[in-house]
Design a protein around this nucleic acid. Structure first.
Lengths: 195, 195
DNA sequence: GTCTATACGCTGATAGAC
DNA sequence: GTCTATCAGCGTATAGAC
């Protein structure tokens, strides 16, 4: 399906322009809706209003198209973060707060966040994409967030544990929190006994 | 791909026995790993150690096999809930608490929970499966949970709002909670100013 | 209940005219 | 830059022997 050479920089773009962007947007929607294997080039061609063969003028393969969809998905979020880092109109606290909002949107709610399952789907056939997603998205997110926080006069020492940020939200803890919330809710209007 | 007649009761099982169970378990693992469209009958046959054609002795179609995988996925959780409801060795509070644990496992951590994205993948081609998943899994979960809670001497009135349980965990609220947690974490060892 | 052989549509992809 | 025509291979599914 794919080879190591399939994941490269923008150098293997065959053509540039609005049409390309349009195709990527439409294809992203299709991939999100039907999965990678579940979306055929014929379906994509129909959705884009062109013939199947014309697709190969813009993208050398289905893999390549998908990779571009994924990259475009997370690039916009990275741009937003980068702009935030440069925004002098905001206070430091506002920048940090907005950055967290952006990260949350990207990770949980946005189309970019919903791409993750697709990457899981193709992780075996396109391992380079998974790696790239991690290096160019996850790691860059963390770096930019770090820069944003560093713009304030905070001591650097406190960020030495930043990579452990994930540990802040362990499944077990969240689970207990959720269960406790339900139990508290159920217990609230209790009138009788409990046995 | 599928017709209305494809989703039925166990009457359209072609054969019963251990082999069938084994095939379902292996296939479930494959579907979870590669998606529905991403898993071919050849791959499934290889994984099960039989020929492609032999598959059709057990299941009339790939759709039918998938449906059985989904159903078996959530059935075990429902059985656990039902047993819990009958368990007189536990106190009422224990039963409620354990039920929440089971629901959490089923929804978030278990293979059954991970099936949800697969159902989303095929929701357009197998709408009956989505409906069945909701009616036989989601609704039954709620019903059994309700029964478990009702075994205590709590007033029925408090459950009139149970269908709104989802509202307890609105995205915005959770989001704010997570962001606040990160901010609190970042602010903790703060030594300098914040502008 | 599993096998071999086979039907046939659809897949991703290419060649070459315009 | 889009098209028609075409390819080899794989997809699901069936027929029928053992």
């Amino acid at each position: 399906m794919s080879s190591t050479a399939d994941v490269k920089k923008s150098s293997d773009i065959r053509a540039g322009g609005d049409r390309r962007i349009e195709i990527i947007d439409i294809s992203t929607r299709m991939f999100l809706d039907h999965g990678f294997a579940g979306t055929s080039m014929s379906q994509l061609a129909d959705a884009c209003g062109i013939r199947k063969a014309s697709f190969y003028h813009h993208f050398r393969s289905k893999d390549e198209l998908f990779i571009q969809c994924v990259i475009k998905g997370y690039e916009s979020a990275l741009v937003r973060l980068a702009q935030l880092e440069q925004d002098d109109a905001l206070t430091h606290d506002e920048r940090v707060s907005h950055a967290l909002e952006v990260l949350y949107e990207v990770t949980v709610n946005s189309p970019a966040g919903k791409i993750s399952p697709l990457i899981a789907e193709v992780s075996r056939s396109m391992p380079e994409l998974s790696e790239r997603f991690f290096n160019e998205n996850i790691l860059l997110q963390r770096e930019t967030l770090l820069k944003i926080v560093q713009r304030g006069s905070l001591s650097l020492a406190m960020f030495t544990t930043l990579p452990d940020l994930d540990a802040l939200f362990p499944t077990e803890k969240l689970k207990k929190g959720h269960c406790d919330a339900i139990l508290a809710y159920l217990a609230r209007p209790r009138n009788g006994t409990s046995g």
